[in-house]
Design a protein around this nucleic acid. Sequence first.
DNA 1: CTATCTGCAAACGTTTTGCATCTGT
DNA 2: ACAGATGCAAAACGTTTGCAGATAG
Lengths: 132, 132
Amino acid sequence: MMNMEHYRNLKIKLTPQRLAILGFLEGNKSHPSAEDIYKSVLKQFPTMSFATVYNTLEALRGKGVLKELTIDPGKKRYDPDNSSHHHLICTKCKKVIDIMKDFKLSVPEEMAQGFEIKDKHIEFYGICKKCR
Amino acid sequence: MMNMEHYRNLKIKLTPQRLAILGFLEGNKSHPSAEDIYKSVLKQFPTMSFATVYNTLEALRGKGVLKELTIDPGKKRYDPDNSSHHHLICTKCKKVIDIMKDFKLSVPEEMAQGFEIKDKHIEFYGICKKCR
DNA sequence: CTATCTGCAAACGTTTTGCATCTGT
DNA sequence: ACAGATGCAAAACGTTTGCAGATAG
């Protein structure tokens, strides 16, 4: 459980709406979309708007608190785990699970065309237990 | 250079618009968006519409001629190379180059939560020669 | 001949923006 | 007090759809 001090260290204004979003995201492994987050927080704050959701997500991304995932065509999804890890995606139901393993991959220099490689993300695709 | 017979084997109607799209994609390593394709074909066919672009791309995807890439948040990009390969993306200018290497990766069973893994795609991120 | 495709315009889902008001620090 | 956040509505953006007319096979 994250404490208030942890949140204060983010140096962003801690409004009730933002605390609700942070609370929803904390430990959340569902890789939610903006709408998932909006719907959840709407229960506590009936005046919540998408503007606030996106504003908060962008602020948190800027602080390195979360990652924007582009695994879903047509919508962004968010991952509150900012550590380096990978994803396994069910191609039927779009469920996403974390793969917490550090793969050491080397790209031959002649393939990299002068790029300086900084990071990587692996998407594994498959069919989950339920969908099989 | 693909010949007409190759295209006929696709068993889709070969309209002039479709041939123009196929011509643009052939050997194209730029990973274009729908708009890139639309703009290019518009020069030859001033009445070209996005409906036709998307219709054709979906038909070609169905035939296994191209891949839809989700590397760019907010828009799909298309890769006329349907073989298994990976991508190196410049985080500044969004340039994408192909990494034609077969990485053998194993996901520990206890991490896979009963998924049947079928495929994978690696995105490498970096800064390209020009942007450095 | 006819199943399929084209092109237009409207609709859609997601994300962004402008702006008046409000609030955490 | 005031920099910065909220919430509403409108706009922007990429994509999809409905349909009347056109065309490849």
